[in-house]
Simulated assay, not measured.
Amino acid sequence: MDINTLRLFIAVVREGGFSQAAKAVLSTQSTVSKAVKRLEDELGLVLIDRAAPGITLTDAGNVVLRRARTILAERDDLLVELRELRGLKRGELRLGLPPIGSDTLFAPAFVAFRDRYPGIGIHLIERGCQDLQDLLRAGEIDLAGLLLPLSDEFAWQDVCVEPVVAVVAAGHPLAARRSVPITAFADSAFLLFETGFSLNQIVLAACRRNGFMPKVTARSTQVEFLFDLIAAGLGIGFLPRMMVETRQHDGIRAIALDGPGMLWHMTLAWRRGGYLSDAAKAWLELARRPD
C-alpha cells in the first residue's frame, strides 16, 4: 500500500467517479482504476460496490477512506514540519475558500500577504463549504473558509458575521418593505446556490423552522447570474447583506428577514490538533476579525 494509491482512492470518492478523478489528478482512467483494484487486492476486500450507481463504498471502503485521509494528512504535516525545520524560505499556503463572499472578505488579505511574504505562494481552491470540509479533513488544504456551525474536528477563527437578506426583483410587491418574515415567501420560487453551499442549509433550516419547504426552481454558483435571474422575476434569492450592498444592480432590492437564525457566520478553519504552518498562521493573523 503506497501513498499515491491512497490519494487516488480518495480522489475517486471525492470526485464521484474514476474518469472524474483521473481528470482531477491529471492521470488516465485506466491508471486510476488499476490503482484502486490493486488496493482491493492487497487488502483482500472490495472497497467500491461496482453494481451500485455512482461511487458507493462498502463498509470496508468507508473504513479505508477514513483511515487514508488521516494517513495522508499526517504525512503532509510531517513533510511541512520538516521543511520548516530546515529553514525553508519559500513555501506554499494551501487555501480553500467558498465562491460566495470571498472577493469582498479576503481580497485585502491576499494583497497584504503577497507584500509581506513574497516567497510564499498561495494555492487557492474555490469550492462549496461541504467540499472544503472534505479537503480539510484529508489534509489537502491548510485552511478553509467555512460557515458555522462546525463539528469539533475543526478549530476556527472568526472572519465575519452578516445577516442573510432576501433579494427580490425591483418590481416585486414586497420590494419597498424594510423587513418581512421568511414566511412571506412561502409560495415563491426560490433561487439557491448549487448543492454543497452551506448558505443553502441556512435558508432551508429557516424554512423548516417556519413550517414550510420552498419550491427551488433554479441553482447557480455565480452571484451575478443569480442577480440577473432575480431581476428578471424568476424567483427569490438569499445572500449575506454585504454581498448585496457591495454590488450594483438596479433590478434588485434587499429585504431584511425577521426572526432569529438567519446569520452567515464565516470563519477560517483548520484541523483541530493538526500541524499549522507558519504561512497559515500568518494568513490567520492578516485575516483576523477586528474586536
Rank of each mutant, 00 (worst) to 15 (best):
residue 123 H to L: 15
residue 282 A to H: 04
residue 217 T to D: 11
residue 23 K to L: 15
residue 273 G to R: 10
residue 91 G to A: 05
residue 154 F to K: 12
residue 162 E to Q: 04
residue 67 R to D: 10
residue 43 L to H: 07
residue 227 F to Q: 02
residue 72 L to Q: 06
residue 146 L to H: 02
residue 244 V to F: 11
residue 56 T to Y: 09
residue 175 A to C: 12
residue 240 P to S: 06
residue 119 G to N: 01
residue 244 V to I: 14
residue 64 V to N: 07
residue 221 T to Q: 10
residue 142 D to L: 01
residue 246 T to V: 15
residue 278 D to I: 07
residue 248 Q to A: 10
residue 121 G to I: 04
residue 181 P to Y: 00
residue 249 H to T: 05
residue 243 M to Y: 05
residue 263 L to H: 07
residue 286 L to P: 03
residue 165 V to I: 07
residue 157 Q to N: 10
residue 79 L to A: 13
residue 30 S to D: 14
residue 154 F to I: 12
residue 154 F to C: 05
residue 66 R to W: 12
residue 132 L to P: 08
residue 216 V to N: 04
residue 202 I to S: 02
residue 161 V to I: 14
residue 117 Y to D: 14
residue 11 A to C: 04
residue 102 S to V: 09
residue 58 T to C: 13
residue 38 R to K: 15
residue 18 F to K: 10
residue 203 V to D: 00
residue 117 Y to P: 11
residue 208 R to Y: 11
residue 42 E to A: 13
residue 253 R to A: 00
residue 19 S to N: 13
residue 73 A to I: 03
residue 24 A to N: 06
residue 28 T to V: 06
residue 154 F to T: 00
residue 188 S to H: 10
residue 41 D to N: 15
residue 16 G to I: 14
residue 60 A to R: 05
residue 173 P to I: 09
residue 106 F to D: 02
residue 219 R to A: 03
residue 228 D to T: 12
residue 151 S to K: 07
residue 97 L to V: 09
residue 46 V to E: 15
residue 146 L to E: 08
residue 187 D to V: 10
residue 87 G to T: 08
residue 72 L to S: 01
residue 102 S to W: 03
residue 239 L to F: 01
residue 107 A to L: 12
residue 46 V to T: 15
residue 11 A to G: 08
residue 158 D to K: 07
residue 105 L to G: 01
residue 241 R to W: 08
residue 144 A to Y: 04
residue 65 L to S: 02
residue 103 D to H: 15
residue 47 L to Y: 11
residue 104 T to M: 06
residue 122 I to A: 00
residue 90 R to F: 03
residue 117 Y to F: 14
residue 240 P to H: 06
residue 130 Q to A: 13
residue 215 K to W: 07
residue 236 I to C: 03
residue 63 V to E: 07
residue 212 F to G: 06
residue 192 L to E: 07
residue 36 V to W: 09
residue 51 A to S: 15
residue 53 P to G: 04
residue 215 K to T: 14
residue 229 L to R: 12
residue 180 V to I: 12
residue 159 V to W: 00
residue 236 I to E: 11
residue 66 R to S: 13
residue 214 P to W: 10
residue 200 N to G: 01
residue 177 R to M: 14
residue 120 I to E: 05
residue 251 G to M: 09
residue 22 A to W: 06
residue 278 D to F: 05
residue 265 H to F: 01
residue 203 V to A: 00
residue 112 A to T: 13
residue 28 T to Q: 14
residue 233 G to V: 05
residue 73 A to S: 03
residue 103 D to K: 15
residue 147 L to R: 02
residue 202 I to M: 05
residue 72 L to H: 10
residue 16 G to Y: 09
residue 121 G to S: 06
residue 124 L to V: 13
residue 22 A to C: 03
residue 95 L to V: 14
residue 109 A to S: 15
residue 1 M to Y: 03
residue 132 L to N: 01
residue 287 A to M: 02
residue 79 L to E: 08
residue 213 M to D: 14
residue 191 L to T: 04
residue 247 R to W: 02
residue 172 H to L: 07
residue 27 S to P: 05
residue 69 R to P: 04
residue 206 A to L: 12
residue 213 M to K: 09
residue 207 C to P: 00
residue 228 D to E: 00
residue 177 R to V: 06
residue 189 A to C: 12
residue 95 L to R: 11
residue 58 T to H: 00
residue 272 R to N: 14
residue 170 A to T: 00
residue 88 L to R: 12
residue 5 T to I: 02
residue 136 L to G: 01
residue 189 A to N: 09
residue 100 I to F: 02
